[in-house]
Design a protein around this nucleic acid. Structure first.
Length: 712
DNA sequence: CTGCGCGCGATTTTT
DNA sequence: TCGCGCGCAG
């Protein structure tokens, strides 16, 4: 049975699928069948006789990789044995683990999560005696933010600070010092953070030519999804893996770049044809996801961008229903109205075909309460993660100690429940263990009975077969009394969580893999998409997914766009792309909620809001407006009124970020140019010495750095 | 040194 | 409202 590529794919998709040799860049608009293209390409490769083990698929989430592999297997009608698929981080983790000794980790290493990293920052700060008594000293999370941002963007901390945290400049020297101390601490304790995975893999591939060659031979076909969200080190890794004339396909959409805060570099996708000579560029422009009225609205969102990421998606899917903009009186009544909407939509769609999206995790709290009260099940993406829960970390700390006795953080956690033992004593014990000072250890274990019990338990664990499920079972009974003592209010719930952990452990035979997956994959509950529950998700976590009906809440100034993202013009641009990503998730039905007031934690009162600029910009004919009447119902405005405060508010709030209008004055230069990805275009402005605004037919107006264009 | 209580400040997004 | 960090008492 052969696959019918003729009828299943459009011309551009088919070209992407069948161009297997040499570098390929696929520019794929939202909903243009990007996943479909990757899936069919996988199938095509295997069908034409390629060994599935020679294929590497790098995606942004583990979920995306699994979904693509599974779909390819369905099309093929047989399993894809040996194909590597996953995130950059998980691929890096697996590769580094196999070659740990080559990068100076002779006894393996432990992967830390965010909380671990923050605690080390604090530890280093204390050891260096920095910021004692300074009330306004940066918090540990801020310290780590600066450090990790500097690494991801590969710029000195000073530059990062100049650009986005000018108020911290008095602490620059301190933060640099802490940054160095942090790096040293990790080395000394065989620890890695998320950034290390990428940088050490890059280093390993750079230095170890035999390994690099081996991997280049093994992965003859590489596909990278969401290429616009890769950062510099990820791009280098791809280059190393592909080699100079490798068969590598990058897929992405510049309009959906929403990870700049993590160092995502739009230049990667623009540079791709430069780095890989002879790159074939394929554009997917037809949208298969959303009905035309939704696309009309999302096109308007992009049209307002200063950089005009104007894709003008079109669709054959018709609908006579416009997207709705709903104005509830408050965020409380917003929650109630959203629940009403869900109940109505439920007549037409399954619950899991409906999603509520928001900018930040906490924004769904009122809705979660309302859903629970009425008995609608929901599944939340992008909140507190399962493995970050304190009791799970407690239990995992024992496992970590079995694996890596140098893991100071795990020691601190494991000894936390012992009365009379604090950080200082832990440090002493740790030091004694590693210098072989058994005398101190004997004294201290005599003093604390619980400590002796802990040491005995760990010794026993080390003697057992290192199978996650077996060790966990023992740990759970040891931990049981500690759990009850530590969390008297809700230990049954936590106990249930731990049992879930045991369940997951059963499918693992390898300890390091188990611990690594837990840190890299987030909530294992997320893996299974529950059948009968509404999806609540941050926009970031919703990326790449789609639903029949999408509701976006809290579309007000300071929430979406986030208040934190209003410092610089580029920040607002990223918020706009985020809004674009959110709206393009919807297939049939899109509802935008703009509460007139929101609860303010600081004052404990409701504050009036201003609608999000992204809502104010929308032309009236692209949506239908509904107000909450004071009786609590919904009121249709037959003649759409102009938005409140349109114009004045916008001018006040965004004058500085609106570089667009300012630059119109100096529109002087005209001419034509050529761009590797967008083709021929007309130059319409030069906002900065090395930046041009160019109108590309079919792509709209874009701002491009001079290096990427060729004058004609 | 540890454990507790008080007061202040903060609140994005993820691997 | 909550969590963090500091200061104080045992």
């Amino acid at each position: 049975m052969s696959i019918d590529f003729e009828t299943e794919l459009n011309d551009a998709q088919r070209e992407a699928v069948q161009t297997t040799e040499g570098p390929v860049l696929v520019i794929a608009g939202a909903g243009s069948g990007k996943t479909r293209t990757i899936v069919y390409r996988l199938a095509h490769l295997v069908e034409s006789g390629i060994d599935p083990a020679q294929i590497l698929l790098l995606t942004f989430t583990k979920k995306a990789a699994q979904e693509m592999l599974a779909r390819a297997e369905v099309i093929l009608g047989r399993p894809l044995t040996g194909t590597s698929g996953g995130t950059f981080h998980s691929f890096a983790y697996a590769t580094l683990r196999r070659n740990a000794a080559d990068i100076g980790f002779n006894n393996g290493f432990t992967l830390m999560d965010r909380a671990d990293s923050e605690n080390i920052c604090k530890e280093v700060k204390d050891v260096f005696k920095l910021g004692k008594g300074d009330r306004s000293y940066p918090r540990k999370s801020t310290l780590l933010d600066m450090i990790t941002k500097s690494r991801n963007k590969e710029l000195p901390i000073e530059i990062i600070m100049e650009r986005e945290a000018y108020h911290l400049s008095p602490y620059l020297d301190d933060i640099n010092e802490i940054s160095n101390g942090y790096a040293q601490f990790k080395r000394e304790h065989a620890l890695m953070d998320y950034d290390d995975l990428l940088f050490l893999l890059d280093q390993l591939l750079e230095e170890n030519a035999p390994l690099r060659n081996q991997l280049q031979t093994r992965y003859r076909y590489i596909m990278v999804d969401e290429y616009q969200d890769t950062n510099l080190v990820q791009a280098r890794i791809v280059k190393h893996l592909a080699g100079s004339k490798g068969n590598v396909m990058a897929v992405g959409d510049d309009a959906q770049s929403i990870y700049a805060f993590r160092g995502a570099n739009i230049a990667n996708i623009l540079d791709f044809p430069k780095i890989f000579e002879g790159t074939k560029i394929i554009r997917l422009e037809k949208n298969y996801r959303s009905v035309q009225p939704i696309l009309d609205l999302t096109n308007e969102i992009l049209a307002g961008a200063a950089t005009k990421f104007d894709k003008h998606l079109y669709s054959d899917l018709k609908s006579d229903k416009l997207p709705e903009v709903v104005y509830p009186l408050s965020d409380q009544s917003q929650a109630r109205l959203v629940v009403d909407q869900i109940l109505t939509l439920q007549r037409k769609y399954m619950l899991h075909e409906i999603a509520v999206l928001f900018r930040a995790g906490y924004q769904s709290f009122p809705l979660e309460v309302a859903l629970t009260r009425i008995g609608i099940d929901y599944q939340k993406f992008g909140g507190i993660r399962f493995h970050e829960a304190a009791h799970v970390k407690d239990v995992l700390s024992y496992l970590r100690l079995v694996l890596n006795p140098h893991d100071l953080l795990a020691w601190q956690r494991a000894m936390d429940h012992i009365k009379g033992v604090g950080p200082k004593t832990v440090a002493k014990i740790y030091k004694a263990m590693h210098s072989g000072d058994s005398k101190y250890l004997t004294t201290i274990t005599k003093k604390h009975e619980d400590l002796r019990a802990l040491f005995n338990e760990l010794n026993t664990l080390r003697g057992l077969t290192p199978k996650p499920s077996m060790l966990l079972e023992r740990i759970m009974s040891f931990y049981q009394p500690i759990l009850i003592e530590k969390y008297p209010d809700d230990y049954p719930k936590r106990q249930a969580g731990l049992e879930q952990l045991s369940q997951i452990a059963v499918s693992y035979s390898d300890m390091e893999q188990f611990l690594g997956d837990l840190s890299l994959n987030g909530d294992p509950e997320d893996e299974k998409r529950k059948e009968n529950s509404v999806v609540l998700s941050t926009v970031h976590s919703a990326k790449g997914l789609e639903w029949k009906a999408v509701i976006i809440i809290d579309l007000v100034e300071d929430r979406f766009p986030s208040r934190k993202a209003m410092q610089r013009a580029e920040d607002l641009e990223e918020e706009r792309r985020l809004m674009y990503v959110a709206c393009t998730r919807a297939k049939d039905c899109l509802k935008l909620f703009v509460p007139s007031s929101v609860y303010n934690r600081a004052s404990g009162m409701s504050d009036p809001t201003l609608p999000s600029p992204f809502i104010l910009e929308l032309p009236n004919e692209t949506f239908e407006r509904l107000n909450e009447s004071y009786g609590g119902g919904m009121e249709k405005r037959t003649r759409p009124e102009t938005h409140p405060q349109l114009g004045t508010t916008r001018q006040q709030t965004h004058t500085e970020s609106n570089t667009d209008t300012k630059n119109k004055k100096n529109t002087v230069k005209l001419g034509f140019c050529k761009h590797k990805i967008f083709g021929k275009g007309k130059i319409i402005a030069q906002p900065e010495p090395n930046k041009f605004k160019i109108n590309f037919p079919g792509f709209g107006i874009k701002t491009i750095i001079g290096d990427y264009i060729e004058m004609i």
